[in-house]
């Protein structure tokens, strides 16, 4: 299974980005191969439509779940309709490595 995590940077020591549409990086973690891929958010500097562009990006990677600090009201219905599970973690101190550890429970 693939899980996307919004990240402030491109390393395992980076912290969870609290913004979904405007996060710096998406981490795609594969629970089977235990591999991680850091993808810069192409919508970061977009004037508008950053959220839907981010949804499209994670959907194209066949992600089943997304961990982030928040999902906007325009994002929730999109992810709901794509059956991608939203996991909201309001902890801006959490490191990507710690979240991956939690996912490996």
């Amino acid at each position: 299974m693939k899980i996307a995590i919004t990240s402030t940077g491109n390393s395992h020591d980076s912290t969870l980005d609290q913004r979904f549409g405007r996060c710096n990086f998406f981490v795609v973690y594969d629970t089977e191969s235990k591999s991680t891929e850091f993808i810069p958010n192409p919508g970061l500097n977009a004037e508008e439509g950053a959220g839907p562009a981010s949804v499209q990006l994670v959907a194209s990677r066949n992600v089943n779940k997304i961990v982030s600090g928040e999902f906007g009201i325009k994002i929730k219905p999109l992810l709901d309709s794509l059956k991608i599970q939203m996991i909201v973690l309001k902890d801006s101190e959490k490191k990507i490595s710690e979240i991956i550890e939690m996912l490996n429970h």
Binding site: D80, Q85, I87, V88, I99, M102
Partner: peptide, 23 residues
């Protein structure tokens, strides 16, 4: 346990454990 909030996109299947920490 981990204080996360999450939704259930598969409405038919009930949620039994946290998708993040497994609690």
């Amino acid at each position: 346990k981990c204080k996360s909030n999450f939704n259930n996109p598969e409405r038919e299947k009930p949620i039994t454990a946290c998708p993040l920490c497994g609690s």
